[in-house]
């Protein structure tokens, strides 16, 4: 890893969950940006491009589905891979995530090992 770590955006309205994910992501050597809802997430990601986004489903103001759709419609940030994280484990929920445009779906709470593996697999090419 170089001096410029990869960066992940973590979008979740629950502070505890955000803190949990942040600690796991940072443990893997990534930098993090956090947002509490879709609108804030959009602002953050337009301000500073990230390499990966973790998005919760149920949030006030703008939920995860709406956020993903908005992000995908953006020229600037539409291509960033998105992983949706939700408490619901049913197929219909997965399908809804893919319809919105998510690249992957994890069931909450994701184990530390899952997150670590996911980050290993989804690391972008090192710019150095």
């Amino acid at each position: 890893m170089t001096g410029h770590p990869f960066k992940a955006l973590i979008v979740d309205d629950a502070t505890t969950v955000r803190m949990y994910h942040r600690s796991l992501v940072e443990e893997a050597g990534w930098a993090t940006v956090e947002a509490e809802n879709g609108v804030e997430a959009m602002e953050k990601v337009l301000d500073q491009p990230v390499d990966l986004m973790f998005v919760d489903v149920n949030m006030p103001i703008m939920d995860g589905y709406a956020f993903i759709k908005t992000a995908r419609a953006s020229e600037k940030v539409g291509q960033i891979p998105i992983v949706m994280i939700s408490t619901e484990a049913q197929k219909i929920d997965r399908d809804k995530a893919f319809e919105a445009g998510a690249n992957h779906y994890l069931v909450k709470p994701a184990s530390p090992q899952d997150i670590a593996n996911l980050l290993t697999l989804l690391s972008p090419e090192d710019p150095s």
Binding site: K69, R72, A73, S74, E75, G78, Q79, I80, P81, I82, G101, N103, P124
Partner: peptide, 12 residues
């Protein structure tokens, strides 16, 4: 645009 972006992100 979304379709295009989604394809690119999936390819990525």
């Amino acid at each position: 645009v979304a379709a295009e972006n989604i394809q690119k992100s999936a390819a990525d």
